[in-house]
Design a binder for these strands. Structure first.
Lengths: 198, 198
DNA sequence: GTCTATAGACGGATAGAC
DNA sequence: GTCTATCCGTCTATAGAC
């Protein structure tokens, strides 16, 4: 042992793979897929570029690894309906915003949305996910199983997320989660159980 | 005159600048800023790459030219408030959706949004536009000039646009404009003039 | 496991001939 | 106005030394 080592990067006792993954999550989340380079990820993680390929193979695979969500949306939705459909509106808003606020899960959502907006295959994945895992799941909890009600609800949630986490619009980013729940909760509730046109 | 000319690209009697602009609009709209290359734009327009630089200088300037909207949002907003703030909700939804449905203006909005989602300078432009031209404009028509009310309204509109025109989610794309106006109109109305928490 | 070196593409932009 | 040729940069990915 006792070898003379460069001080530039060092031998890294730590979690190299994890460091890369964290850096990638952040960069994909902030800048999107194509603006993010493996070099930049490596730099942010404090590792050599070649290690990114070494651990993840390709940029696509790195991205895929980044996208794996540590949560099950279906479960969360079910739980939001636990207290009955008549109180689900605000609870859904709260659950939804918590996911985006959470530093563990938020960046993945941002990254997912960003690429869905500019990358056709991602868009299909995204639309499919929203459709089956979210909208249809909402619908199962509704008296009339209406996907129309469910997607109206989804539209309000997505709108909040876009302004707050993607576009970072001043009044919305500055509001607290509780304020948003209080303001948008009734909207969700009306979409789910209130009177709509037919 | 009467010179022998190559048939590969030809002398182009037509509107070269316009052809480039149209091709760029489409590509930026479909694929976003960085996925769009000047080479691809030139190919789609049927012109030489160098002409893109010749007419627009840089990729950034080409993009900026692409983004110029043929409508004044402020005016449209004012008109939606013509019948009084108590009926503005549904009218705003209608006006907003018409803009996105219109083949003249819709593609520019899609392009604007797409690149705003993945290109930081565009995001700033977009956020700035929404903030001043939309949210603040709404606010001037409200009794309490609340930008918070205005941005909640904006969140619902943006959410509809995202699901309908960007992500193309089945239940939402299939609904008619009138249905959406009827369903989301009351939401807007409540955000503008209804009871909110403080 | 970590790094150097390099191959191989592609992109933006410019100079200059026609 | 249009095109050719080219410079220079950045990127992904891999081969191979340590």
């Amino acid at each position: 042992m006792t070898s003379t080592r460069r001080q530039r990067t060092g031998p890294r006792g730590g979690d190299t793979r994890g460091d890369i993954l964290r850096a990638a999550r952040e960069s994909f989340g902030e800048k999107g897929y194509d603006t993010t380079s493996m070099r930049a990820v490596a730099r942010a993680a404090g590792v050599d570029v070649a290690l990114v390929s070494y651990y993840f193979g390709s940029k696509d695979q790195l991205f895929a690894a980044t996208m794996e969500l540590p949560v099950s949306p279906s479960e969360l939705i079910d739980r939001a309906f636990d207290a009955g459909v008549d109180e689900a509106g605000p609870r859904l808003v709260d659950t939804f915003l918590r996911l985006w606020d959470d530093p563990e899960t938020g960046p993945a959502f941002v990254a997912l949305f960003r690429s869905a907006a500019s990358h056709e295959p991602s868009r299909e994945m995204f639309a499919e996910s929203i459709s089956t895992a979210i909208v249809n799941r909402y619908a199962t909890h509704l008296p009339d199983h209406s996907t129309r009600r469910a997607s109206l609800a989804a539209s309000q949630l997505i709108g909040l997320a876009v302004l707050r986490y993607i576009m970072k619009l001043t009044p919305v980013v500055e509001m607290t989660r509780d304020e948003l729940v209080a303001d948008a909760g009734p909207t969700l509730q009306r979409y789910l159980t209130g009177p709509l046109t037919d």
